[in-house]
Amino acid sequence: MFELQAPLIARREVASGMWVLSFSAPEVAATARAGQFVNLLLRPGPLLRRPFSVYRATSGVVEVLLKPVGAGTAGLAALALGESVSLLGPLGSGFQLDQAAGSVALVSGGLGVAPMPLAARAAAALGLQVHWVHGARTAAELCSEWEGRRVHWATDDGSIGYHGSVLAAIPEGIGQVVACGPNRMLAALAARFPRAQVAIETYMGCGTGVCLGCAVPRTSGVYDRACKEGPVYQANDIRWDVLPQHLHYGLGA
């Protein structure tokens, strides 16, 4: 775990209102694994850090994906090039990719695409056949970047790809499913792929395991920490009826 002053070195829009921010953070870039996250602190800005999956981590640069929804994300999206944030990470557990599975579907809804580029590279490095399965409400909201040759898109309005849920776009006969997206989508995915690896979304306080704010209800009856034991879980380990499905982000500073 490192805490770095990380300058913003690039920014690009990858879907309508969805941005990739690139921060120079060599120690974190060198150690981050697929499914892990970083916790960003903006000053001046809201009190708490904001957690983001690592989108890409190459040659000293850590990339995160964000959509301005509240004061924290809006402030980050408005950063000028050269301005720095405090970047804490890498945090959390990563995806456990199964080499024996032969193939993997990386299933994402909307912003849930965030951990998938790193997952795709890790999967390819293991020799897995990678299926990129990504859905959004409309074509404009679909992430314009992907990894690999096997790409399956889905949109709620049918403006591109499969017309309907991204879950229906998952090809048959896949060895392993890895997913990230709204908790509602993941709950539905869990019913069909109970052994899928899912990266879940929660409110988070510290990101380092001390505040116990990011409690995840497990089927074993205990709560554990999304920031430490998570944010990646096996889908059938989570009590989806207790995990909040609606996260409200419109926070004041």
Binding site: L47, L48, Y203, M204, C214, A215, V222, V242, P244, L251
Partner: peptide, 13 residues
């Protein structure tokens, strides 16, 4: 076991 989530919420300062 503690309370169910959400357990934290950010407020002004």
């Amino acid at each position: 076991p503690g309370t169910p989530p959400p357990r934290i919420v950010e407020t002004p300062s």
